[in-house]
Write a protein that binds this DNA or RNA. Structure first.
Lengths: 197, 197
DNA sequence: TTGACATAAATACAGATGTATGATATAATA
DNA sequence: TATTATATCATACATCTGTATTTATGTCAA
């Protein structure tokens, strides 16, 4: 990436700040106003920033400046409970959302859960943690999955041996689960934990 | 919050989608175009959404629609190393950023680190996890802190007894650290873990 | 039935906004 | 020295954009 001049960096920084503060890109005149420069001058800087690859632009669209690799976030619904219909139906009854970077969620179908219990503590999954689950066709042995066992949802380690699914808690004080009625809902892709106080 | 009509919800949903896709709010005409409705009609819907509290608006500003409690994110620098100057100087040499909800970071001074080693595994902090650290004046016993011990940074449990600081690993195979040369850099406030594959 | 509200359209206007053009000046570079 | 990139300004223009106004229809509750 080509070097920026002092002025160009300042303009880029301002755009960044403006975007952070207002959640929208500034207009050419808003930038010009801030630096007390003419419109044409800012046009020049924007052109340079564009040719050097620091900005992109939607032509003739107001506030059409954009960052090449802008961080984008998708709201992922935090569900109170998981049931058989999850992923089949639209998620409408979400109590809350976590915002996850789209380069994590990509185009996957996701939902989030609050972790309950200590059965996965040795895997670093604690009560109160928020986990993001993605629908995956094929979980592999050792993956952390959310499964429905006889209608009850659980976060467990997935294992398949001789065509039979085993769900293990990493906390060994809990028994291994195996049942004919196991449905894998999805695979763990992300975890966030907030330390309060 | 007042109930929305079918149409109003659809308009609100479209604004949401548009924002997610384009990272900017739509203009009145862009909404009208999508629904093949007149400008005036959309104006009405926007007014209703506003009076019912689902939208706010910056007057006479293009793309001035906004969500009342829009999630806002602060870039937090992921540092390669921590040293004595952290927090004193501006963080400029960041290799990467994590974006954290501002209602978590609030007005605190934060930086982020990649966790190395297994000394805090029993506390659910694993190698590769990204932790967000906030400068706090007063850590309490049992808090997870980032500390500098003789110039080396470490993530440990903080304890103070009889005026002396003890840094404990939750993995008991590591010894308790105590030294006259301990500087508490900050307190753990957030953790994110990405499951790859 | 009257009023409040939702839905929808057409039109007009002022100001916002991106863009184009032409000009000047300086500094660095080939 | 000629050229290129940078920096700046002034001005003009087409169109984008928010806003105001007016009209019309249908529904529902008081």
């Amino acid at each position: 990436m080509k070097e920026l001049t002092e002025k160009q960096r300042k303009v880029l920084n301002f755009i960044n700040e403006f975007y952070a503060d207002n959640a929208m890109m500034p207009t050419v005149r808003e930038i010009a106003g801030h630096f007390k420069l003419s419109i044409g001058s800012i046009q020049q800087h924007l052109n340079s920033l564009q040719t050097k690859g620091y900005l992109t632009k939607r032509d003739s669209i107001s506030r059409g400046i954009d960052f090449p690799n802008r961080q984008n976030f998708t709201p992922v619904a935090v569900l109170g409970s998981v049931h058989a219909g999850t992923f089949l139906e639209q998620i409408e009854d979400a109590s809350d959302y976590v915002y996850i970077n789209t380069n994590v969620t990509r185009n996957r179908k996701c939902f989030a859960l609050k972790v309950k219990g200590d059965s996965m503590e040795p895997s670093g999954i604690f009560e109160g943690d928020t986990i993001v689950v993605s629908k995956e066709d094929k979980p592999y042995n050792g993956d952390v999955v959310v499964a429905l066992v006889d209608g009850e949802s659980a976060v467990k380690l997935f294992y398949k041996e001789n065509g039979r699914i085993f769900l293990k808690s990493s906390n060994t004080k809990y028994p291994v689960i195996t049942s004919d009625n196991i449905e894998i809902v999805g695979k763990l892709i992300y975890l966030v934990r907030e330390y309060k106080g």
